Amino acid sequence: MTADRFAEKLLAWYDRHGRHDLPWHHNRTPYRVWVSEIMLQQTQVATVIPYYRAFMARFPDVQTLAEAPVDDVLSHWSGLGYYARARNLQRAARSVMDDFGGKFPQTREELESLTGIGRSTAAAIIAQAFGKRAAILDGNVKRVLARYHAVPGWPGQTSVLKQLWEHAEAHTPDERVRDYTQGIMDLGAMVCTRSRPACSDCPLQTGCKAYARGETGLYPGSRPKKVRPEKTTWMVILEDREGRILLQRRPPSGIWGGLWSLPELDPAYGAEELQEACEQNLGVDCGEPELIGGFRHTFSHYHLHIQPARLDVTGQSTVRDDAQHKWLYRHEALALGLPAPIRTLLTNPEQAALL
């Protein structure tokens, strides 16, 4: 199948079966397209839609996002995960305001100068927002092309990625590029899925080398397996006489960067040492701890075993509200940007233990 026939067949399928009514398809501005593309990185469309609508309602344009408090941005991202995306989104918004006079750049080079935008995301913005020809290569597209051309190896390898980009460039048409880019993403998400692809419904079945060989499961190649290390931490819910809970802001880099979370204590402490540990490490006098069911949360590079404990503040506390600490009622805490497991822990501890 020639490059033109590939695009022709894909577009015909998209016209009949593709997604034409996603929220970012309406009032299609570069800003709205950009936010959707960042949210869709490593997150499925169905999950993104409610977050996107709420985000747009609060931050309807790039200036509003650039000028918003970071806690407000993170609170609207809470639950989507990969929180560096939210921080990078706001940094890029500020760059658009400061470096481009509030107008979104239209070239790949300028777009890639913005924090959090790589080659494929820049191309998606160019195609979807401006209708200009640009080849994309997100996870869904990599899977379609790897199978269609039987490209061996893990797409994270430079040599494999280079081949996939060459195929992406070759297949991208000059016309209807907006529909084509949406169509090939939809095909990967809806038909050419990671497991059990619906090959009988695929418009590209005739030319697909992996299908012809009965080897769709081999493409794309898997990431080399690495054993995730296991880490453990205490997380303490310190509640004062007024019913307020102590939250700490996490460092800007690392897991849950910049979000508010519960204070952590070294797992070397035993349960009977938590009162003393809170006094020594947090400056808070507490009663005896009430242990809550622990749970494990998995990050991309390690597993974290979280053992929560609740302690009543019985005496004086040296901790005052500042840039890194806040005493908040639960409803106030839940309005902030919190990691999803911490939000669940504060609202439904029993459910957190099942995570």
Rank of each mutant, 00 (worst) to 15 (best):
A309K: 14
H303C: 10
A333W: 07
V284H: 06
E272N: 13
F295M: 08
T121M: 08
C286M: 11
V177Q: 04
S195E: 09
R196E: 14
V236T: 12
G283Q: 10
P263V: 15
S75T: 14
Q307F: 06
K225N: 07
Y180G: 06
K225A: 12
E242Q: 14
A3N: 14
F6Q: 03
E332I: 12
E272A: 15
I306M: 13
P173S: 09
E112I: 03
P173N: 13
K231R: 15
A335N: 11
W77R: 02
Y148S: 09
D99K: 11
D321K: 06
I237M: 13
I306Y: 07
T172Y: 06
V284L: 09
P220I: 05
V62A: 02
W34Y: 07
D99Q: 13
R196M: 13
C286R: 01
R244P: 09
L247H: 05
Q163Y: 08
G243S: 10
G258E: 01
M97H: 03
Q41H: 01
C208V: 05
N27Q: 14
R19Y: 05
V236L: 13
H17R: 09
L80R: 03
H297I: 06
Q316H: 14
L161N: 15
P267H: 13
H331A: 14
C278R: 04
G258L: 04
D15N: 13
Q248W: 10
T43M: 02
P252G: 09
R19E: 06
H297Y: 13
R223H: 11
V141L: 02
V45C: 00
D15Q: 15
R147N: 04
G18H: 02
L282P: 11
V151K: 09
L265Q: 11
C286V: 15
M1W: 09
S317W: 01
E276Y: 08
S95G: 07
P220K: 12
N27M: 11
I184S: 03
A46K: 11
R147A: 04
R119I: 01
D61L: 02
Q275H: 06
L346W: 07
E332Q: 15
Q106A: 07
P152A: 12
T158G: 05
A268Y: 02
M190D: 10
A323T: 11
